[in-house]
Simulated scan of single mutants.
Amino acid sequence: MELFFDMIQIKRITIAEINDILPLFDSYRVFYKMESDIDAATKFLKSRITKEESIIFAAYENNKAVGFAQLYYTFSSVSLQESLILNDLFVHADYRGKSFGEQLLLKAQEFCKENSYKGLALETAIDNPAQKLYEKLGWEKDYHAFHYFWQVK
């Protein structure tokens, strides 16, 4: 299903559209201090889609991809339900503030509802200005848990 908001089109990405978002995905990684690597990015995204490990939505303006959101599956043993993690959200700098991010978030929420998932989780930097947008769209900040990460060294 595709959504249109004025000139914004939100579309689920398949293998056939990976090239549409590769420059965005690479820019996203560079933003997080990783080296540009289109070949590795291509392999990574193709693997996620082929193995059905993620859902990727892209925002288009005039048939040009300007942003994307990538969702991953997760599960809760306590509630016995599936959930999604909004792992990646990126809009090209030239298109920020024009509701592309908002429309991607709304599409992720709609997808979650349509498929009877428990909800969506995300993690963001404490200084990320997008927090205001998340809260506007009904996301609630988690105050009752800490987030930990163990890294293999």
Rank of each mutant, 00 (worst) to 15 (best):
Tyr72Gly: 02
Asp37Arg: 13
Asn87Ser: 15
Pro23Leu: 12
Leu24Asp: 01
Ala93Cys: 12
Glu61Trp: 10
Ala59Val: 13
Leu24Phe: 10
Asn87Tyr: 12
Met34Leu: 10
Ala41Ile: 11
His92Ile: 12
Lys33Ile: 06
Leu80Arg: 11
Asp26Ser: 09
Asn87Phe: 10
Leu86Glu: 01
Ile85Pro: 01
Asp39Thr: 07
Leu24Met: 05
Gly67Cys: 06
Asp26Asn: 11
Val78Gly: 03
Phe25Leu: 07
Glu52Ala: 10
Phe90Thr: 04
Leu84His: 07
Asp88Leu: 08
Lys98Pro: 06
Leu71Asn: 00
Asp37Ala: 07
Tyr72Gln: 00
Glu17Arg: 08
Ser76Arg: 05
Ser76Met: 08
Phe25His: 06
Ser77Val: 11
Ile56Met: 03
Tyr72Phe: 12
Phe25Met: 04
Val78Ala: 06
Leu84Trp: 05
Ala40Asp: 04
Tyr72Glu: 00
Asp20Gln: 12
Ile21Asp: 00
Tyr60Gly: 04
Tyr28Met: 06
Leu89Ser: 05
Ser83His: 06
Lys64Arg: 13
Phe90Glu: 01
Leu71Val: 01
Arg48Ala: 03
Ile18Tyr: 02
Ala16His: 09
Leu80Tyr: 09
Leu22His: 05
Thr74Glu: 01
Gln81Ser: 15
Asp39Gln: 05
Asp26Gly: 07
Ser54Arg: 10
Val66Trp: 04
Thr50Asp: 12
Asn63Ala: 08
Leu71Cys: 03
Ser76His: 09
Ala93Pro: 12
Ile38Tyr: 07
Thr42Trp: 03
Leu86His: 04
Phe100Pro: 02
Ser54Gly: 07
Val78His: 08
Ile85Met: 14
Lys43Thr: 08
Glu61Asp: 09
Phe75Met: 02
Leu89Pro: 03
Glu82Asp: 09
Asp88Glu: 06
Glu61Tyr: 08
Phe25Cys: 02
Ser27Ile: 11
Ser77Asn: 15
Thr50Asn: 07
Ser47Cys: 15
Tyr28Trp: 07
Ser36Ala: 12
Glu53Ala: 15
Ile85Asp: 04
Leu80Gln: 11
Phe100Ser: 04
Ala58Glu: 01
Tyr28Val: 03
Ile56Cys: 00
Tyr28Thr: 03
Leu71Pro: 00
Arg48Gly: 00
Ser47Phe: 09
Lys43Ser: 15
Thr50Arg: 14
Asp37Met: 14
Phe57His: 12
Arg48Ser: 03
Gly101Met: 14
Gly101Ile: 10
Ser99Gly: 02
Glu17Tyr: 15
Phe90Gln: 02
Glu17Gly: 03
Arg29Tyr: 05
Ala93Lys: 13
Ala93Asp: 14
Leu24Gln: 04
Asp37His: 12
Glu82Asn: 14
Thr74Gly: 02
Pro23Arg: 14
Gly97Val: 08
Lys43Phe: 15
Phe75Asp: 02
Asp37Val: 14
Ile38Asn: 02
Lys46Arg: 15
Ile38Val: 13
Lys43Gly: 05
Asp39Met: 12
Ser36Gln: 11
Val66Tyr: 04
Met34Asp: 11
Asn87Ala: 13
Phe90Arg: 04
Lys46Gly: 05
Phe75Val: 09
Gly101Tyr: 13
Ala40Gln: 09
Arg48Thr: 06
Ala40Lys: 12
Lys64Cys: 05
Val78Cys: 05
